[in-house]
Design a protein around this nucleic acid. Sequence first.
RNA 1: CGGGACGUAGCGCAGUUUGGUAGCGCGCUUGGUUCGGGACCAAGAGGUCGCGGGUUCAAAUCCCGCCGUCCCGACCA
Length: 510
Amino acid sequence: MATPDNAVTPRAQDYPQWYLDVIKRGDLAENSAVRGCMVIKPHGYAIWEKMQRELDDRFKATGHVNAYFPLFIPLSFLTREEQHAAGFAKECAVVTHHRLKSIDGKVVVDPDSKLEEPLVIRPTSETIIWDTYKNWIQSYRDLPLLINQWCNVVRWEMRTRLFLRTAEFLWQEGHTAHATEAEALEETHRMLGVYADFAENIMAVPVIRGKKTPGERFAGALDTLCIEGMMQDGKALQMGTSHYLGQNFAKSSDVTFLNKDGKREHVYATSWGVSTRLIGALIMTHSDDNGLVLPPKLAPIHVVIIPIFKSDAEKAKVLEEAGKIFAELKAQGLTVKLDDREGIMPGAKYYEWEAKGVPVRIEIGPKDLEKGSLCLVRRFVLEIPGETEQDQRKRKKSFVPRAEALAGIKPLLDTMQRELFERARQFRDKRSRVINTLEEFEKFFKDGGGFAWVHWAGTHEQEDEMAKRFETTVRCIPQADQIPAEAQGPGLCILTGQPSAQRIVMARAY
RNA sequence: CGGGACGUAGCGCAGUUUGGUAGCGCGCUUGGUUCGGGACCAAGAGGUCGCGGGUUCAAAUCCCGCCGUCCCGACCA
């Protein structure tokens, strides 16, 4: 039997290629003709829509509302906050003209249409939003102001990679204004909690919550909180950030309010965001050599039904039963796909839907009709060391009486959701190590690496030194409750030997 | 912007050294046989060989210029 050469991908050997392959075979996205930009295909976008809904529910539940602000930011707005402007200066797309003109049959930019002030395509919206908030906030009664925006932003990155880093990407950015520092800090932490909850319970990706070192902070922030996940190559991925902005943006846009004592004060700000990068995280955390693996809570299709038949008589019977099962599962609130395409071998359909990450497949043929049973196939099972692919394939498959099968799908999806999280957590823990010396550190990253829990008291420059020597960076300074038992307590910095109050996470990162 | 590689059918590539009818695999179309883990047979459709110039009887192939893409570095949700 002929096997197409894309059947097996080298997950461990060539991770970047494997990653692109999963995206391609999973029909998620492709590079566009536009430099550094990505086309998100319907299946990929459906995942994003599910993420949006889950996140949006959480934003609403914590008192936020959605709004929309302009794509264009006048250059003078962007430069109001000095650090912010400096941080984004090197990656801005700038609009300078507003008209084209035909000269000698060639359409060119009309030099006479030059804008008085260039417009920057938003790399993030703090500046334009705070310029707007100035008019919305007068009194402490106007606070807190809790607004989120779903939009696209542009950052002119030198090198791009589907989902992880593209010149244009989709995201949400929350921008809140508060009367006190305490409230703003509480909001910063609350939204980090929302992200962590979403990552772990919906994406099934375990994350470490912590904060960035000053060098890794968002441009213009006083503090940047983050969640960090570990991908299957041991590299860290920043999956979301929540910034405490203090009064920086309020001051640069002059946003003040009268407090209860009748005194004028600058407001306190936060901003927080996650992007379509999360789809990249999903791929790199769960997928395998057969393609995409999706946590059921984000799968656009929960169940695919593959009818199997030879004769026309069989076809009629099988399709009738398949239609009934389709309707019954749909009535349960599941999203179901009946793949009744003809002229494609059932096996080819199995591979196709597996590559797209559909969690459960139902095969239904004449034998099932006879026996009154269904063939259920899970997209994955937890690995047993040393088992062959054949054995694993057998374990994925079960033949169950019809009624039992239909009632069992929702619980099965819940189980798979749990198992994915558990598997990812065990993988991360296995690739995490408490490390005390540079020799150990070097060896750890030579052998594949992961999360190194080390004591650190270095400067920004010394972080750079570690990056040069080992390609590692400080991923985050974890919250106290995120530190595993064996990593707790004070110690001495791995590089400088200076005392350090707690361990931090160092890793290679995307 | 510095270093490297590559532009040939929708996708992946061979052909370039040594100039001589534009090829292969996948995919696509039609017909038939198949159909419980990637089917097979037969017949088809699909190309200004990245762009422009030069050498030559003759250029995908040699020469010059340009454009574009990817990889490695600095930047990064």
